[in-house]
Write a protein that binds this DNA or RNA. Sequence first.
DNA 1: AGAATAAGTCAACATGACTGACGTATCGCA
DNA 2: TGCGATACGTCAGTCATGTTGACTTATTCT
Lengths: 188, 188
Amino acid sequence: MVDLKSGANPLFLREEELRRGIELMFYAYREFTSEPDRILSEIGFGRAHHRAIYFIGRYPGITISELLVILRITKQSLSRVLSQLLEQGYVVQTRGLRDQRQRLLTLTESGRDLEERLTDTQRQRFAAAYRSAGAEAVAGFRAVLAGIMDPADLERVERLLPSPPDGKRRDADEEDSGRGKLADKVGR
Amino acid sequence: MVDLKSGANPLFLREEELRRGIELMFYAYREFTSEPDRILSEIGFGRAHHRAIYFIGRYPGITISELLVILRITKQSLSRVLSQLLEQGYVVQTRGLRDQRQRLLTLTESGRDLEERLTDTQRQRFAAAYRSAGAEAVAGFRAVLAGIMDPADLERVERLLPSPPDGKRRDADEEDSGRGKLADKVGR
DNA sequence: AGAATAAGTCAACATGACTGACGTATCGCA
DNA sequence: TGCGATACGTCAGTCATGTTGACTTATTCT
């Protein structure tokens, strides 16, 4: 059995540090989702509804298949939550202009309200954590999470934020009204 | 509708930065659990089994009620996975010495093997992310996640790691064999 | 014209959470 | 000493969210 105590042992420290990272992820993620979950349960929705609402709000006019790529769930799973969101007037579908087979998804007024209400609790949590940890810590936080996630997902996240915070956008061309072609942002 | 493009607008940046944090959490957590999930599904287990095995391995001799506090699930939910782990020989129960009502949980040899196999994929993921991000980034990562999680959970995580990495332990007394009294570590 | 693509739908199933109720053994205190 | 509190186990039912597999319809592309 391994010696679990020797504080000077670098292997022990490494093991402890890695486990600490694992545990921080577990506990932080649970806390991160707890408030939205509570609000959602009051109106008979679950976490899956939040995810759909969040990304439809994030990429207005997103298609079903693009949303499926982001969420990595099956069409049937998405269908269940989406049909509820449509029925209850949080989301609307319109046909694609170029491709009439596509259904473009957009939040309604009340959809935006709900999204705002849900995401705001998470934004506030992050804002507080960022404030108390400092700007340098935020950069470190992002660097580590970026190293953990799937590179394809990272691509998608970074597309929307300028790398140096001085106005230089990556795909600033070929956009017309503040919302670009979604296919570019989502990535296949 | 809000102007989503003006790169010089500080409010836009703040909003974007916060959303980026939210998305990093979503994507990173999914990736973080994907490998263990894959392994578990091969042997007919799920994520809940990993969580139980992980924390029993982390706190050998932990009681049922302490485990419930950590996992924040109901006794009935834990019971299902735990009875499978007991039946299939990954975990053993012994009666508490001081309090005979308690069932102390410990991993068996094969339980430790499985835990090692599952957690190792996560450790490697963290090790790679830590390596590429650097030590300072790791400190930032931890600071931000610590700010997001429940303070009670943070307490529990920090109890096991010396604050300055030089061997000073918080509760280095009253331990006998490298494993302290669990009640202290778990926290109520 | 026919294959490929986007989306919708039906059915069945697994997992992991929940509530509520009740039983048993043990501990601790008045 | 006896009784309430505690630790654990269990039965039963429900719900949310994921899965696989099969099939349909409308539209686009070659």
